[in-house]
Design a binder for these strands. Sequence first.
DNA 1: GTCCGTTTACTCGGATAGTCGCTGTCCGAGTTGTTAGGG
DNA 2: CCCTAACAACTCGGACAGCGACTATCCGAGTAAACGGAC
Lengths: 154, 154
Amino acid sequence: MKISQGVEWGLHCATLLALAPPDRVVRRDRLAAHYGLPEAYLAKHLQAMARAGVLHAVPGPRGGYRLGREAARITVLDVVEAVEGSTPPFLCQEIRQRGTGALPPDQCRRPCAIHATMTAADQAWRASLRTVTIADLVARLPAGVRERNEKIVS
Amino acid sequence: MKISQGVEWGLHCATLLALAPPDRVVRRDRLAAHYGLPEAYLAKHLQAMARAGVLHAVPGPRGGYRLGREAARITVLDVVEAVEGSTPPFLCQEIRQRGTGALPPDQCRRPCAIHATMTAADQAWRASLRTVTIADLVARLPAGVRERNEKIVS
DNA sequence: GTCCGTTTACTCGGATAGTCGCTGTCCGAGTTGTTAGGG
DNA sequence: CCCTAACAACTCGGACAGCGACTATCCGAGTAAACGGAC
């Protein structure tokens, strides 16, 4: 189990974009340079976020990215699902219905306890990520960093 | 983000081993056949679980596996960490200290808000998995299955 | 009949190839600002 | 001087290689039981 680094990149970029004035776009190369990231690869994740509606991409000269909606309405979970995809991390293979000890389908109408336990843990994980928004991340920036980054994206 | 199928295999096998009488070992090929799994690959996960103390391996003829301790004292999280390893799923790369917008190390003594949020979600996930034990999984087996599987492993 | 040593067969353990998804990169489609020409 | 139309440059979007981790497998080390022989 591992979370791709694209999630971290996307969250940092979203936090930075939240400091820009409304209707102000930031170019991709500026985001990449600010965090020392490979621009071409960062593009892949920003695309995914734009497809999910978390970001809004503006093409052409004077183009760039801005948040898809207000920062307080974008949760960390939204960014994670946009980058990683929303496929559940645990895929039950129903091995209880395979092999010599296979159970008849009649007794497998309900998900097995293992599946239920894993799903409950996943729900807890997502619920935790849902309680934090991009606006909260901005509020927790160290003193002075917010003002400095606001000037950079203006 | 994806959880390896070995976790599911390990949990099912542990649930089955919990039905065996104390000090009774079950051979590896019987576990594999019961769930229709490739024995050689299942061995890799059982090894990992034995190394973590979740299972106890008995070599030689009449050998096999049994639980490392009573089922009520083995949590689902123990099995997950034994199979997947205990490396945290989110590795902060501290990109805030890289690139043109790099922050001085003085302002990075505390983990960033993103890191803290991810860690909190991971803690919630683990806490959820810690509340369920192998004994609980056994208790939630469908009616009749427990008795049938008890006969198989006896 | 009992004890001991050897043999034997069976079990788990670590080392070895194959495959899928994340990582990293490139070039093309689309759009806007510019600029030159004409009225 | 103003309008129009073509041009050009810049931006994002999707398609193309590289690498690490999970998947799958094999053979060797170790052990307990069984068997045969000696006492």
